[in-house]
Design a protein around this nucleic acid. Structure first.
Lengths: 211, 211
DNA sequence: AAGGGAACTATACGATCGTATAGCAAATAG
DNA sequence: CTATTTGCTATACGATCGTATAGTTCCCTT
């Protein structure tokens, strides 16, 4: 029963760290706060993770691992198992909704990305080498695949990826804010559908003028 | 000579605070660090700004004020003084390039926005009430104006605003990161033009398929 | 030139930060 | 059954955090 307890305690600390690091960032999160959130002693946190930096790295790795698992769940099925027939509009819809819902279900990595990408330093260096290089390549590859299936406009893939990810992530990032200002729940299916519908109109080539 | 000195010292502290709060966030920035950056004593910072929260609020206000001044410079002229003739593509181009270059010239507010929008709390509440409500409304109004001039696709203005701002801000936000990964300077005119050109292709309705 | 107030300094407070270390109980190995 | 390792705790360290307060300098007013 000892090993199990250790795993449970370790994981509960990690889960608490995920929540706090994503919400408050590296500097805003103290080891004591993580310990309190996990209902463990501060000393135990340091026993399992040695230093704050190591705790942070393990936390980010954990977030990215969850993210990658979840990603295949949200995107893999729809895009790859139905490559042929279907309505184009429906497939783009699935892709965009998948990306948004995936981001809503996994908001931590976006928060970490936006918090750390702004601060040059060893943490950003580590993230770039460990995750972001690969991520960028995979994102561009996904766009290329979608373009080859005529799901996305055939503009420069790198630019297309920036626009796609930028628009969708931005929607999710400021959704809590927009919700409060507008008094609507931007995370509701209805609002997401509305946004995606309009985004698709744009992707399919809604002209600036009808004339 | 006393008033002048006071102004200078106060402003040098504010300038230092702008830099540090944008780069490191509220929690990551200490009063001592601001003082050191401004080459002033820590006590002087507290004399002028009382508490850290007040310093932060004045800093954010200062950032937004600069931002609003700069905004009219980057957008006001091009859009409003040439409402009639001109090539449509050229005007959208001006609008997009203007927004990107404006964001590059004023990166602080985006950093503050993305850092704080993620953390629910009194600071976000204050920002929403003081700036963000107005900002959102103005953004949507700008899109409506552009749409009425046939500069942007006539989809839902709110969605259009999210896509436009999201894509452009995202480009700037991860530009340092992309630059390092790809080995190109994404802040160079050449790269910005390339991105904007492709974005315009999308806005003008590059179809998913040519068939 | 006397007085008052504004700009600024020196110094110290308690709290909390991340880290270090010594010890303890229980499980496991020999 | 003893010895060693493992999971965990108790406690304390120096540094730095934001804040508080008393004092000093110097311009401006009258």
């Amino acid at each position: 029963m000892k090993k199990d307890d250790q795993q449970n305690n370790r994981e509960s600390i990690l889960a608490a760290a995920v929540e706090l690091f994503a919400k408050q960032g590296f500097n805003g999160t103290s080891i004591a706060a993580v310990a309190k959130q996990a209902e463990q002693s501060k000393a135990l946190v340091q026993y399992h993770f040695e230093t704050k930096e190591r705790l942070w790295k393990e936390t980010v790795s954990h977030i990215w691992q969850q993210r990658n698992n979840s990603m295949t769940h949200y995107l893999g099925e729809d895009l790859l198992t139905a490559p042929a027939g279907k309505d184009h509009s429906q497939m783009v819809r699935q892709l965009c909704k998948g990306l948004i819902q995936f981001t809503i279900a996994n908001p931590e990595w976006v928060k970490i990305l936006y918090q750390e990408s702004v601060i040059p330093g060893p943490r950003l260096d580590w993230m770039i080498e460990t995750f972001l290089k690969t991520d960028l390549q995979q994102g561009v590859d996904l766009v290329k695949l979608a373009q080859s299936l005529n799901l996305l406009p055939s503009i420069d893939p790198m630019s297309m990826q920036t626009i796609l990810i930028g628009a969708l992530i931005h929607y999710v990032s400021i959704a809590p804010l927009t919700s409060r200002i507008l008094g609507r729940d931007m995370f509701s299916d209805k609002q997401i559908d509305h946004f995606v519908d309009n985004f698709i109109l744009l992707l399919e080539g809604a002209p600036p003028q009808r004339a």
